[in-house]
Amino acid sequence: MFSTVGQLPYVLVAIMASICIYAALFKSNLFKKMLAIFLMTDAVNLLFIIQGYRLGNAIPPIIPPGMDPSEFASIAVDPLAHYFVVTAVVIGLAEVATLTALIIYTYKHYGTIETKKIKELRG
């Protein structure tokens, strides 16, 4: 199926992302939906890290003093993948803050966070 063992981590990402999409769509608890979305972002972060990693004695993407740039470029891990993850983590925090504020207010108004019991609107 896979040509190398190194591709196996992708399966982990696929399963994790699928479970999270399922939970976000079909769970009725708003808080569980929010957690599922946040974990989904983490699954994608994992995918970025897998794609930017280097096996063997890899070094972080910070150039040590005196090292030749071409040698550094051949042993350090991918900074672009790290950059995407850093950005997505901050954005994920903003998502959580927004949704938490809304969920707290939903609870205040309705006394529940089960979507099945919140039926003011018909959709």
């Binding site: 199926m1 896979f2 040509s3 190398t4 063992v5 190194g6 591709q7 981590p9 992708y10 399966v11 990402v13 696929a14 897998i50 794609q51 930017g52 990693y53 280097r54 096996l55 063997g56 993407p61 150039i63 740039p69 071409s70 550094f72 470029a73 051949s74 350090a76 891990v77 991918d78 900074p79 672009l80 993948a81």
Partner: peptide
């Protein structure tokens, strides 16, 4: 993901940033 390169492959754009 079947056709993707396995773990441990850094794409040239990443190496460009590292080099420059």
């Amino acid at each position: 993901f079947l056709g993707y390169p396995g773990i441990g492959f850094v794409r040239p754009l990443g190496e460009f940033y590292l080099f420059n």
